[in-house]
Amino acid sequence: MISRRKFLRTASLASLALFVAPQLAARIRKSGQPRLQLRKDDCILFYGDSITDGNRNRENGGVSKPDALGGGYVLSVSSSLACRYPKMGFRFWNRGINGNKTFQMTARLDKDCLGLRYKPTVVSVLTGINDYSLSLARTGKGDPEKYETDLRELLTRIREGLPGVRLIVMEPYAIAGIREKTDSFLPGFRAYQPVTKRVAGEFEAVFVPLQEHFDRAGERYGKKKFSADGVHPFSAGIELIARAWLDAVEVAEE
């Protein structure tokens, strides 16, 4: 059973995110920046690593099922859209897998994206930090060129397999000043972020600048309220990601 102290702490972090995230999103989303338009009956696939996975129940791979969506930002985004726009008929898939690198996401694309029962019309991708971690472990440094190649291949395969698909690319992020181990690899990791933005632009994907959201929230409210290790989010961090994603879209209601 969850302790009263832990419950109150979790609730307070969630409340903080509900207050903070919309304000930050409004400041960060510059006027004129494109938003992705969600349409009636859109099927949205969230594709990524552990942050997307959110400890989802992989035994239940159903569309729009709460336990299949996990306990992270995917559930928050899906719940918000389903509640606010019940007549739009949105469907949601979560196919994040803990520890995945971009090339592994490409390798499982046929099963976890192109072969889904309800074909995605919108694919949201969050990847990059595990690519850097793998390169760092093997060579002692990052390899943003390989990451760029792998990300471009992933997005190309998605576009080729799902004609007309609309893309969202989320920026991989890491928060400094929380954990020494995370801080130690930040200088090399930062080179992966502009690569993500540049490739997103090449594919006409809507780009979600997560690093800026976390930096501003951390400066104002304290970094440790959003993550324990600088990567995996607390409830406040989860909601911050969700609000950043929601701010990058608009719904075309009939």
Rank of each mutant, 00 (worst) to 15 (best):
C43Y: 01
R198I: 13
D112K: 10
V206H: 01
N57H: 08
I241K: 00
G164I: 10
F103S: 12
F7Q: 13
K87H: 07
L16T: 09
F46D: 00
A228W: 03
T102P: 00
R91P: 00
L16P: 00
K6V: 08
R29M: 05
K111P: 02
D42W: 06
Y73E: 01
G237F: 04
G188R: 04
D131K: 11
Y47V: 08
P163D: 15
A17C: 03
K146N: 10
L162W: 07
R138Q: 15
G230I: 05
A200T: 14
K87P: 01
C43H: 03
V122D: 12
V125K: 01
D42F: 08
A176N: 10
G237W: 04
G54K: 11
D150P: 00
L136A: 07
W93L: 07
K223Y: 11
D143I: 06
F203S: 09
E59A: 14
L240D: 08
K6M: 05
A21E: 12
N100H: 14
E153P: 01
K6R: 10
S184H: 03
V208L: 00
P209R: 00
S3W: 02
S227G: 04
K225G: 06
Q211V: 11
I238V: 15
F189S: 06
A174M: 13
N98G: 15
Q37N: 03
V231N: 11
D131R: 10
G70W: 02
I168K: 06
S79N: 13
M88F: 05
K146T: 14
Q23M: 09
D42P: 02
V231K: 03
L240N: 04
N57M: 05
S15P: 00
I178F: 05
S227V: 08
A21N: 08
I178K: 07
K6W: 05
K87W: 01
P120A: 10
S12L: 12
A176Y: 05
D247C: 09
R58I: 14
L18A: 14
G99R: 05
V199L: 01
V251L: 01
I2Y: 07
N100L: 10
P66S: 11
P172S: 13
C113Y: 02
K101R: 15
G54N: 08
A174I: 09
Q23G: 10
S124C: 14
S227W: 03
D247L: 01
G128V: 12
V165A: 09
P144H: 07
I129P: 00
P233A: 07
A217W: 05
S135R: 11
K225F: 05
F46E: 01
T139C: 10
S133I: 13
T156M: 09
M1G: 13
V122P: 01
F90Q: 08
R243H: 10
D112H: 12
F203R: 08
M88D: 05
G230E: 04
C113N: 12
L45V: 13
T127E: 05
I158G: 00
L240P: 04
N55I: 08
T106R: 12
F46K: 02
D67S: 12
A176V: 11
V165D: 07
S184A: 15
T196E: 13
S31E: 15
N130Y: 07
A26V: 13
A137H: 07
A242Q: 00
L240E: 06
V20R: 02
G142L: 06
A217E: 11
Y73K: 03
A200E: 14
T52L: 06
A176K: 14
T139Q: 15
L16D: 11
L38A: 04
G237C: 07
R29V: 10
R91D: 09
